[in-house]
Computed example of a mutant assay.
Amino acid sequence: MLFVLNQTFSSATGKRVAAMILLTSLSVTSLVKAADEVDEEAEKEWKEVALQLPEAPKASNLIDFYQSNNLSFAIDTRSVNVVTDGTVRYTLIATSSSGAKNVSYEAIRCQSYEKKLYAFGRPDGSWSRSRKNQWEVISGTNTNKQHLILFTDYFCEGNSIAGKTDTIVDRLRGKRSLFSR
């Protein structure tokens, strides 16, 4: 490339311009490569712990934490688990105003502001694994803000998990706020 630039720019000024173009392109290439390496390292460092599905939720263990226009949301406190991979896993129960229930086993990853759906609960207490096996950014723009509420009010403090399992369950029960330690 330098040979081509030297042929194109024969004057001293032209050679300086050619050298600056070459150095700029090398710098940009180096920065892009370095950013890619940092992204790859961050991804390599985090490894998701293998999934273990909990027992089916029981009504006595449910705590309501959020209500939208036509749905109420509860967590099965026995399913809440702060996992060593830096996620909080839990069973979520969404109940419509007509009484229909959807049960799901999910996780929130505070570090990346993401959620993941692992499985759906069946009426017989068994689980059906989700076909969608990816993390998604938590949205605060939907009508139902259950994941945002869990992230901001119960599970996370910034991009860190806000305590151990017992602390999070106490918070869900209203015994302690996010800011009391």
Rank of each mutant, 00 (worst) to 15 (best):
N81V: 11
F9H: 08
T84K: 14
L53E: 08
T77H: 04
I108A: 09
T29C: 11
T13N: 06
T8V: 10
T143G: 10
V80G: 00
F73V: 04
D39H: 08
C110P: 01
G99L: 08
I75A: 01
S79N: 13
A74D: 01
R122T: 08
V80Q: 01
L117S: 03
W46R: 11
D153C: 09
Q134K: 11
R109W: 01
T29W: 06
L31S: 08
R89Q: 03
E37K: 15
K33Q: 13
Y105W: 07
A42N: 14
L23A: 15
I75F: 01
R109S: 00
K175E: 14
I149A: 09
L92P: 00
L172E: 01
N6L: 15
L71T: 01
L148C: 09
D39K: 03
L148T: 10
S72C: 02
D85S: 15
T84G: 13
M1K: 10
N6E: 14
S104L: 00
S25Q: 07
K116E: 00
L23C: 12
D170F: 03
G86M: 09
F179L: 13
A100N: 15
S160N: 15
L51D: 02
K15E: 02
Q7A: 13
L71S: 00
L31A: 12
K101N: 06
P54Y: 07
C156R: 02
R171I: 04
T167E: 09
L117I: 05
R122H: 10
T143M: 11
V4E: 12
K44W: 13
A100L: 12
S98N: 14
N61M: 11
W127H: 00
L26I: 07
D153L: 05
N6I: 11
F151Y: 13
R16V: 04
S112F: 12
L5R: 14
V83I: 11
T24G: 13
G174I: 04
T143K: 08
L92W: 07
T84N: 13
S25V: 10
A56F: 08
G14I: 12
T152L: 05
N144D: 15
D64F: 06
G125R: 03
Q134C: 05
T143Y: 09
S112I: 04
V83S: 15
A74Q: 00
Q67A: 12
D36H: 15
G125P: 03
D153R: 14
C110F: 01
E45W: 08
D64I: 08
S98F: 12
A59W: 07
Y66L: 02
A74I: 01
V83E: 13
F120E: 00
Q52K: 06
T24H: 03
T167P: 00
M1Y: 12
N102T: 06
V103F: 00
E37L: 12
F155T: 03
L26D: 06
S126L: 04
S79R: 10
T141E: 15
P57D: 02
L117D: 01
C110S: 05
T141F: 06
V4T: 14
Y90T: 05
Y154P: 00
C110I: 01
D64Y: 07
A107Y: 03
A74F: 02
